[in-house]
């Protein structure tokens, strides 16, 4: 059993919601999907028990009715664990992960600006990456957002 498979086994043993939803797509890449309600314990487990100490990136996705989130974690810089979770577009509220990964700050601000997530617990600060006079309620990375004017 490779170390990737060991991690998958350990994850699925602890969290049964991950059964069948976690797979190793290629060496060093584990993809996983989970509902938002079950997400946070998995993240904490991955960090504290499995040694995924780097949060490399958070990707936000617009999937029609849902807004999805990918948390890309890595362990010893080699194996990456990509946990997907989603919230509804009507109520896109997620909790911040800056308490365990301080570096998530900018990534979460980006989610707020570009995709319209609401992040609870994010410290006050300047916005990123849009301008301060950007109109309220315009989220460029949503699929229904179209460019106006000429490129």
């Amino acid at each position: 059993m490779t170390s990737e498979e060991a991690i998958v086994t350990e994850l699925t043993n602890k969290f049964h919601v991950l059964d069948g939803k976690t797979q190793v797509r290629r060496p060093r890449r584990i993809f996983s999907e989970v509902a938002y309600a079950d997400f946070r314990p998995i993240l904490d487990f991955a960090k504290d028990k499995l040694g995924f100490n780097y949060l490399n990136m958070i990707t936000g996705l617009d999937e029609g009715d849902n807004l999805a989130l990918y948390y890309h974690l890595s362990k010893n810089n080699a194996i990456t664990l990509n946990i997907k979770t989603f919230v509804t577009k009507n109520n896109p509220v997620v909790k911040t992960v800056t308490d365990v990964f301080p570096s998530a700050d900018v990534a979460e601000r980006e989610l707020v600006d570009l995709l319209g997530f609401k992040v609870e617990g994010l410290a006050a600060g300047s916005r990123y990456p849009l301008t301060d006079d950007w109109p309220v309620g315009e989220f460029p990375l949503r699929k229904d957002w179209k460019m106006k004017g000429e490129v």
């Binding site: 300047s126 990123y128 990456p129 849009l130 301008t131 460029p140 990375l141």
Partner: peptide, 15 residues
């Protein structure tokens, strides 16, 4: 120090 990023946002991901 307060850091404000984003002055170079060019919308490449959207493009």
């Amino acid at each position: 120090v307060d850091i404000r990023l984003g002055y170079n946002h060019r919308g490449i991901e959207k493009a």
